[in-house]
Design a protein around this nucleic acid. Structure first.
Lengths: 160, 160
DNA sequence: GGTGGTATATTAGCCACGCTAACTAATTAG
DNA sequence: CTAATTAGTTAGCGTGGCTAATATACCACC
């Protein structure tokens, strides 16, 4: 397979991923969870308690951004702060029951919408998609170099 | 194939798409094009001139948001405004040469990064991904109900 | 046991880009 | 000709990116 073909595949994959997420994203905000909050919550729910710093690294945003995000989420009862008894500087973040519930509801909705679309495909088409998802995840996991294993849905940043 | 399996496929696809775009998005801002600008530009470059209103619909954002985005892009020489001679209300938007060049450069970068990853796969894995991209694009095109045919990379919105 | 350096989190203040509400101007319908 | 509709803008708000500067805690070392 020549390199030019790789680029063509890359291009189509890129486009497919954009369309897929554009479609799913509409369900994200249907229940009061902004994307930034959903992404941070997913890290805590699937990966357990984290410190502010490690959350910032996992989300690939700056420390002040995370501080402010968490202040709001704590105010709304989605996360709980807890200070470390070994190290007075670090703050541990836990998803509350409410936060966990909201995250799961949103996830359900998104995935259900996609599953609807999948219903209209043939078995072999679905099998192809399943195989592709596996290949992609292996490929991307291999080239990812960050700490967090969960799913930050990162969105843009300013560059100045 | 039972519905439960569809959900599992949906879940894996969702996750794969997120990881894919998270990886690509880093290249987006490497050249002074914010995601919102890149997305608007891609509509004009690949789809030709558009009116403010149709761009807003294609991007799925409100009219004021587009107005402000375009004001900035015009200031920076990425787009040109032109009024319609039939209808004094409408404003046509054209990508300038500079805008077109910037967009293509960014696209090259993103796709090149992905093609690198694809190099490490086997031929049959690549074929699976190519087939999956086609299936996805057909599936998503079938359920999309908007006017614009180009590629808005939409990101979150506020709901109040 | 104080002193300097490093690490963690916060505060302050900027910018981009979502939104609604309210407006102007142009067109179309009746 | 007036009323309704449509296209775009202006004003003003909220979230979530950022850097720079600061407070606190820890650590290392003399």
């Amino acid at each position: 397979m020549p390199a030019a073909t790789h680029r063509a595949v890359a291009d189509r994959l890129h486009s497919a991923a954009i369309h897929l997420l554009r479609r799913l994203r509409r369900h994200d905000e249907a229940m009061g969870l902004t994307p930034a909050r959903a992404s941070a919550l997913s890290i805590m729910v699937f990966g357990g308690p984290v410190t502010l710093g490690s959350l910032a690294r996992a989300e690939q945003v700056s420390a002040p951004t995370i501080t402010r995000l968490i202040v709001g989420m704590e105010r709304d009862g989605l996360v709980r702060r807890e200070s470390d008894d070994q190290d007075g500087r670090v703050v541990w973040l836990h998803a509350t029951a409410k936060g966990t519930r909201l995250l799961h509801e949103g996830r359900q909705r998104r995935v259900a919408a996609l599953a609807d679309d999948l219903n209209r495909l043939s078995d072999s088409e679905r099998a192809t998609l399943a195989a592709a998802a596996d290949i992609l995840d292996r490929m991307l996991a291999g080239s990812s170099r960050e700490a967090g294993q969960a799913r930050p849905l990162r969105h843009a940043g300013r560059t100045r």
